[in-house]
Structures are given as structure tokens and as C-alpha cells.
């Protein structure tokens, strides 16, 4: 070992030392605390928080993904407001603060990410794609905050005492992801109509045959009609694939975290938390990238 390496090894940064200390404390706590006696009930649908007011549409209670989704929107709105204020201040003083620079760097990365695929359509497609990305990313990561899925009310369900958490990761409910998927697929049609005009609809309803097809004409017409039917099936299948991929990944992550923290508290959960951070980012990236691919495909005429 060289001298410099030995020097580096000797010098322990206070942050690392604190981390090791915390991990040790958590190990001891994990041994002292008894593990859960029974696995908590895992519900695939969002649990309903009972509310005293008879609101129309919420007779059975409030789905617990709704507060998280609203909170996600609130967090993003506040960040946007802070960015706006920082930008105004930077215009006056000529010195941008750290938050402004960080957001600008993030957005530049996202811009070149979209530009790589959409090229000259970047300005038209970026707002929607970026909204999907930021909303899904924030919602996924907010699902990992302490308190989400663990603080709630105990309720009787079919004779069992069940914990109804106040917050549940917004994308761990099929309703949220289905809504996002429907918005995305409708946007594909809107983008197609905007860039191709009525010609876009010929993709779905095309019963024409090339003029020189002769006796094969009727067969080609039927084949084109069938291709249009396939296109319609393909658009519908996009909604389900978008919705189920996001829901499946995030819900599976939540179940994994619940099961691991039931088996061994504190320390064993940490690597999975890191994994979930990564999965949340990848799923946000995949959803927005796939939306972008479909928008770009809709702008092309085939």
C-alpha cells in the first residue's frame, strides 16, 4: 500500500463516521425490537380513508393515493414558484442562486434528452414529456418518505383489524397510472392530428388500394382495413401497457419494502430503499421516453 493510500485510509470523514455509527445503532435496535407478529394486510387497490362529510363521489371514503397525488402537485407547484422568484431575483441582481443553477442544469439535461429523439419538434413535445417525468418521479420518490404507508387509522374489515394509511405512493394505485396512460395516449392522437392533419386518421381507416393493383385490389382493401383495426388495437394496448408497467413496478416495490421491513427492521430495508429510488427514476424515465417515442412516431407519415 502506498503512503498516500494509507493517509487516505486514516482520514475518516465525519459524515462517514456518523453513517457507520447510525448503522450500528440501527443494527442494535433491529436486534432489540421484536419483529412483526403478523404481516400487514396488503391491498392491491388504494385503501379508503373514512371521511365524516358525505362528499359526492367519495361515499366510501377518500382513496389514500389522492392526498399523495395532490401533495406531489403541490410540491412541484411550490418548486416552480420558487424557481420563478429566484429567476426574477437573478435578473435584478445578475447572480443566480444554487437552486436556479441546479434546476437549469436538470432542465438542460432533459432538453437534450428530448432533442435527441424529437429533434425539431422538441419545443412542442418537451412540456408534456417533462411534466410526465417530473410528476412520476416526484410521486415515486414521495412514496418512500417515512410516514407514507405507515401512519393511519385502524379499521375493521371483514372481522380483521386493518391499518388504513393516510398516504400511499400515488403510482401504487392503478387509477393514477391509468389516468396518466389515458392522458398520454390521447396526447398521441392530438400530436398526430396537429402535425399530420386529417391525414393522421388514415392510419386507422384506410380502405384504399394502389391504382395499379388490378384484380388484387379488393384483397388489398381488406388487408388495409385489417391493418387499421390492428392500429386501433395497438392504441388501446398502449394504455394498458403504460398503466400496468408503472403500477406493477411501483406496487411491487411497496410490497417488497413492507415484507423486508417485516422480516428484519431498519438495516435490511436500506438496500431495497436504494433500489426503489433507482426503480422510481427508471420508471419515470421509461414512461416519459415511451410517450416521447409515440409522439415522434405520430408526427411521421408512413
Amino acid at each position: 500500500m502506498t503512503e498516500t493510500a494509507q493517509k487516505k485510509k486514516k482520514k475518516l470523514s465525519p459524515l462517514v463516521a456518523l453513517g457507520i455509527l447510525l448503522a450500528l445503532v440501527m443494527c442494535v435496535l433491529g436486534l432489540i425490537f421484536p419483529r412483526g407478529r403478523e404481516l400487514p394486510v396488503i391491498s392491491m387497490a388504494a385503501e379508503r380513508i373514512p371521511i365524516p362529510l358525505p362528499l359526492p363521489g367519495f361515499q366510501e371514503g377518500f382513496p389514500n393515493t389522492l392526498p399523495t397525488a395532490l401533495l406531489t402537485s403541490l410540491v412541484l407547484s411550490v418548486l416552480a414558484l420558487v424557481y420563478n422568484l429566484s429567476a426574477r431575483r437573478a435578473e435584478k441582481t445578475g447572480r443566480p442562486n444554487r437552486f436556479l443553477v441546479a434546476v437549469d442544469a436538470l432542465f438542460e439535461g432533459l432538453y437534450s434528452f428530448v432533442e435527441n429523439i424529437a429533434r425539431d419538434k422538441t419545443r412542442a413535445l418537451l412540456p408534456l414529456v417533462a411534466t410526465f417525468f417530473f410528476f412520476i418521479l416526484t410521486a415515486n420518490w414521495m412514496g418512500l418518505l417515512p410516514g407514507v404507508g405507515s401512519i393511519g387509522l385502524y379499521e375493521e374489515h371483514h372481522g380483521e383489524r386493518v391499518l388504513v394509511p393516510f398516504f400511499r405512493g400515488a403510482n401504487a394505485d392503478l387509477s393514477t397510472t391509468l389516468a396518466l396512460a389515458i392522458i398520454s395516449v390521447i396526447a398521441v392522437q392530438v400530436v398526430g392530428l396537429r402535425f399530420q392533419g386529417p391525414r393522421y386518421l388514415r392510419k386507422f381507416f384506410n380502405f384504399s388500394a394502389p391504382p395499379n393493383s388490378g384484380a388484387l385490389g379488393p384483397v388489398l382493401r381488406i388487408a388495409n382495413g385489417f391493418a387499421g383495426l390492428l392500429e386501433i388495437i395497438s392504441e388501446v394496448s398502449k394504455i394498458f401497457s403504460f398503466a400496468f408497467r408503472l403500477f406493477g413496478n411501483i406496487f411491487a416495490g411497496e410490497v417488497l419494502l413492507i415484507v423486508v421491513s417485516f422480516l428484519a427492521a431498519f438495516v435490511a430495508t436500506l438496500p431495497f430503499m436504494g433500489l426503489e429510488l433507482f426503480v422510481g427514476l427508471v420508471q419515470a424515465l421509461v414512461f416519459s421516453m415511451l410517450s416521447l417515442v409515440f409522439y415522434t412516431m405520430a408526427t411521421h407519415h408512413h
Binding site: 401497457s241 400496468f244 424515465l285
Partner: peptide, 21 residues
């Protein structure tokens, strides 16, 4: 870096879409 990340997301997206379809 951005290009690589974009490529990875593109392949992952189109690949998973193909599988789910």
C-alpha cells in the same frame, strides 16, 4: 452521458413495450 441515458431509456421503453404487447 445524456445520449447514453437517453439510449438506455429508449431501449428499455421500446423493449418493455414489446414484451407487454
Amino acid at each position: 452521458l445524456v445520449g447514453d441515458l437517453g439510449d438506455a431509456a429508449w431501449v428499455l421503453g421500446v423493449g418493455s413495450q414489446a414484451g407487454i404487447t
